[in-house]
Amino acid sequence: MAGRGRGRRVLLGVVAAVPALLLAWVVFAVVRLATSDYPLGGGPEKVPCAEALEFGGGKLPQGAYDTRCTVRSWLDTSYAAEFRMPRRDVGAWLAKSCPSGPAPGTEMCDDGADLCLNMDSEAAPPPAGAGADAVTVNVTYEGPDRALVRFSAFTV
């Protein structure tokens, strides 16, 4: 009969532990949601810039420096590349990277950009072989010799 009382105590302990574990999980989830920029995962991770530009059908230009490239992937995949290059080479690099794309212009550019290229429609799709559904390039001239390029390629 002594074994029977011990079994009840174990069962009572298990029944009491389940709500406590559930409460701990809820507290953890609330804290993570409140303190993380990416509570469900998919935060940016550093990647080689060649990988980021290749996803958008491009290549890193000769003379690029100060390169920073990331990928975020959860429901969609989004690559971002930021680099500087000689200003005089921007036009040739864009023409080589996107030969069938629209001409670079100044409409629909990000704030502060001097030149941009958007390939995100049937009329102006990303280059052949790109893994991205859309590609945007924003160029900001930082002086007579230098340009800051922000390149993004993503699925939708």
Rank of each mutant, 00 (worst) to 15 (best):
A134D: 00
V156K: 07
M1N: 11
A80H: 14
V10A: 13
P126D: 02
R84L: 12
S73L: 08
P126W: 00
A24F: 14
K59A: 15
L40I: 07
A64N: 06
E142L: 14
G57L: 00
T155F: 01
P48V: 07
G112H: 06
G112C: 06
M1W: 14
E122H: 08
C98R: 13
Y141G: 07
A20H: 06
A92N: 10
G13P: 07
E82P: 05
S121K: 04
E122K: 11
Y38E: 02
E54G: 14
V14T: 09
D37C: 01
V31F: 10
G5W: 10
L11Q: 14
A92C: 02
A16C: 13
R150A: 11
P39Y: 01
L60T: 02
P44K: 06
A134V: 06
L33T: 03
R68D: 15
G7S: 14
G105A: 04
A103P: 05
Q62H: 13
Q62Y: 13
T155S: 05
D66W: 12
R88D: 15
V18H: 09
V156G: 04
M1L: 14
D120R: 04
T140G: 03
P127D: 01
E107F: 09
V156M: 11
V26Q: 14
R68Q: 12
P19N: 06
E107M: 12
S97V: 07
Y141M: 11
A103G: 04
D110L: 13
P144S: 15
A153F: 01
V47E: 11
Q62G: 15
S36F: 01
A92D: 13
P39G: 02
G63F: 09
G5L: 13
S152L: 05
D110A: 15
A130I: 01
C69D: 09
K46W: 03
G112T: 04
G41Y: 05
L53W: 04
V15K: 06
F55Q: 06
R88W: 12
C98Q: 12
D133T: 02
G13S: 15
P99C: 00
D133Y: 02
V139S: 01
G57T: 00
T106D: 13
V137Y: 02
R8A: 12
G7F: 10
G57Q: 00
D89N: 14
L33P: 02
V27I: 13
R84E: 15
Y65M: 12
V47I: 11
L22C: 09
W93P: 06
Y141H: 08
